[in-house]
Design a protein around this nucleic acid. Structure first.
Lengths: 198, 198
DNA sequence: GTCTATACAGCGATAGAC
DNA sequence: GTCTATCGCTGTATAGAC
């Protein structure tokens, strides 16, 4: 007799890894089951279909993105503004270099979204949230007079694009100095609009 | 009796569209065959397996990337340097907005590469070529004294990252002004190192 | 060179025993 | 809650007719 919560947790965790490594289609429910040491129908006790299991994982990913890109604006001052932008990138880069599964899965949902309207709408919202995070950050910078109010919208979109693609490039075997690239991006974008730079 | 070359061409073109819209796994050889109006085994006459058909499409994609990112450095002068960087992005953005299949397929090969060493190595080379294009462009800019020799390597990598992810974002339903973002990227990166700017 | 027919494996999902 | 057994379907791939 197994523990109910344990089994549920094992299915989620095993699916997370296997889906990321082999893809949704190439990972059968039986292979997930045998990896855990249970039978295939046991999975159907927890999830009414394979699609629902895939959807459950999406919810987990979506929540993780929220927490990764969270920024507490209250702690930002003109003195530490640029440093905080550096850190936002550096922390994420270090996090992604440890867990490749996250981005592999996310890419698969991106592909799913082209033929599934639900995923499409959810992903647009996530990307929007993502863009907003950087826009809020720069807007806050203007408000506390850390930077000048010049082209803030486009500049924040540019930062979001760089940030997002750094995580994609980490997945390939490219060995670039991503932290340096991110710092160059922040420096370039803020160049000329930073106040009080000595 | 069908024409041999025509059938081959039809298989390639139909597979290109269907694989991009539904994915490799969700597109069966029978569905491709019936879409064209031939029988499933007919495909096996031209391709010894589904994987080989997928591989053939990869060769086409790889070639297309080479031509998209081609830049004739001979025509670059200090006067048109920045304008050419603008155009490189703008032409690609317009091209991508017309043909979404290209990027959908490319993303699928990115996922395949995580479990297939052949694709992995090929893709790294493509990404490398991609980075080199921008590096060559900026290095050439230094040579013809269009820009100053400051941080050229990182700056070219940054441009490549922005350029690459703009094409990814076009696939989503985000309606951003990508041309403006690209211009901001070029402006930001070149800010302070451009010579002869009035 | 292209077809019909078919082999064979594997999938998602369900029924019903324990 | 988890199992065995099984259904129905679809996939890739091949053999052999024309």
């Amino acid at each position: 007799m197994r523990n109910k919560e344990l089994t549920y947790k094992q299915i989620i965790e095993t699916a997370y890894v296997m889906f990321s490594e082999k893809g949704f289609d190439q990972t059968s429910l039986s292979s997930i089951a045998s990896e855990i040491g249970i039978s295939k129908p046991a999975i159907y006790y927890y999830f009414k279909s394979k699609d629902e299991l895939i959807k459950s994982l999406f919810e987990i990913i979506a929540k993780e993105i929220q927490s990764i890109t969270f920024m507490d604006l209250e702690t930002i001052t003109p003195a530490n503004f640029k440093q905080n932008l550096y850190l936002l990138g550096e922390n994420t880069i270090k996090h992604q270099e440890k867990d490749h599964h996250f981005n592999h899965l996310f890419n698969q949902y991106m592909l799913l979204s082209t033929r599934d309207k639900d995923y499409s709408e959810r992903l647009v919202k996530i990307q929007q949230h993502f863009l907003n995070t950087f826009h809020d950050m720069l807007t806050h910078g203007v408000k506390i007079k850390a930077i000048k109010d010049e082209n803030i919208l486009i500049k924040s979109q540019l930062l979001a694009l760089v940030f997002d693609n750094i995580t994609n490039f980490i997945l390939t075997d490219m060995t670039l100095d991503f932290i340096k690239i991110w710092r160059e991006a922040v420096d370039s974008v803020l160049n000329g609009i930073v106040n009080d730079e000595q």
